[in-house]
Amino acid sequence: MTLTVEGLSYAYGAKQALDGVTFQAPPGRFTALLGPNGAGKTTLFGLFAGLLRPGAGTISVAGHPMGRAALARMGIVFQQPTLDLDLTVTQNLRYAAALRGIAGRDAGRRIDQALDRLAMRERAAEKVRALNGGHRRRTEIARALLHEPSVLLCDEPTVGLDAASRSAITEHVHALATEGLAVLWATHLTDEVREGDHLLILHRGRLLADGPVAEVTAGAPLSDHFLSVTGAAA
């Protein structure tokens, strides 16, 4: 299993943000982590990234417990933009590659490959400031793929994008999953989840559902099901 989370809990002081969360994200699968605002999605990503330390529970990536070996196998796309606006797409990617010890011709080859995968090659020399929101996001996804991670973690990467960019990015990342990557995609938008995806529903720090979409919804439209479980639990 690529990403394994077991009994994960985290509290901000007295406020429990995550409470005994357990799930797995297998390779070649798009695992959608669906949850309303405040469900604990971003806290979960803070724990994955090592920016927070769990109160209880464990995370492991490709068999490695949280730490440098696990980080080296993760590609993370954060909710907030993290690109340097004054640098070009390539400069941003070179910087990220170097932080992972990749430089020179090898970095150039990987950057070309990653940009190709996201159909961003022709933007390589542009300054990030000149890109629209959708292309900036694609650059961040390309950046997360440079070191060929085993799991791609995306924290609401479509926030603030128009409908066309949103669907294009969702499409791209679904394609990455079919190529064999394990993808964990946090969102509060049900239309980003496809029939064949694996679905996790997170609400108030607890996991309410874990299974293939059709199984979880029992044939009902996902948006109705999502509203009914998060509404009822509220």
Partner: peptide
């Protein structure tokens, strides 16, 4: 605030080195 510190701190290297 811009988030790029996160990019630095998630590099798989010791934090003191970063």
């Amino acid at each position: 605030e811009m988030g790029s510190m996160k990019v630095l701190l998630t590099a798989p290297l010791p934090r003191w080195w970063l």
